[in-house]
């Protein structure tokens, strides 16, 4: 099994993801420079957090046009598993692989802290090892994580059960996201984006290891196929 992790200029969680995937889950990884194409036949592609291109226009807006993204989009359209964390989630939305957009946090400030999350759909490759309504404690770290989608889009998300992860309640919602949405998948469920950082909560020595289940789900899905 081999995962590809894309490094955009300004990515800063790419090495964290590599460390967790390789050291904790013992899965081989390739770091893919954003100017390259996807060469190998990867089992999953991970888009890391950070400030791609300094987030200078909008988070993810410029990275979405990096050369590598054409092949990431092809990969996703062919059913390949794509996980976008934080900035990676923003890039997936800019690229049109996930619906919605991010506004600046309601309090206008960067926020880094642990938040309580709740699994809303465990029938995805990224959450199959979790229970529905299970509560997770995973940190967020962003300034533009205020998820927005119009009413029609929101209805679609609900009808298709694309809301995978929510902040537990209003007081756990760190950014003002509509309906406390923290992570969504596409209709086919092979593309998943979330604002919290599961790679920061995947080892016992860190303050929480609740993020492990996301990677475990992904790996078990790839090993065994859909439940």
């Amino acid at each position: 099994m081999r995962f590809g992790i894309v490094t955009f200029p300004g990515s800063n969680c790419d090495q964290d993801l590599r460390y967790v995937v390789e050291e904790v889950f013992e899965i081989k990884t390739d770091m893919i420079w954003h100017k390259e194409d996807l060469e190998n036949n990867y089992n999953a592609i991970l888009l890391p957090g950070g400030f791609s291109y300094g987030d200078y226009l909008r988070s993810g807006a410029i990275a979405r046009f990096s050369p590598v993204m054409d092949s990431v989009i092809d990969f996703a359209n062919q059913g390949g598993l794509v996980l976008g964390i934080c900035n990676g989630f923003q890039i997936l939305m800019e690229a049109g692989l996930l619906p919605g957009a991010m506004k600046v946090n309601n309090n206008l400030k960067f926020v880094c802290k642990h938040v309580k999350l709740q699994i809303k759909n465990n029938q995805t490759p990224f959450t199959e090892k979790l229970e529905r309504d299970q509560i997770l404690n995973i940190p967020v770290a962003h300034q533009e994580g205020n998820f927005y989608i119009d009413d029609r889009g929101l209805d679609k998300l609900k009808v298709n059960d694309q809301i995978v992860l929510k902040y537990l309640n209003d007081s756990e919602n760190p950014n003002g996201s509509i309906e406390n949405i923290a992570g969504i998948c596409n209709k086919k469920r092979n593309v998943f984006g979330l604002m919290p950082h599961p790679e920061r909560a995947s080892e016992d020595i860190l303050s929480s290891s609740d993020g492990k289940k996301i990677f475990e789900s992904l790996i078990s899905f790839l090993k065994e196929g859909v439940n």
């Binding site: 939305m93 957009a101 927005y148 989608i149």
Partner: peptide
């Protein structure tokens, strides 16, 4: 394509 995000 780039400068504005038509979603918002």
């Amino acid at each position: 394509r780039l400068l504005a995000n038509p979603v918002i």
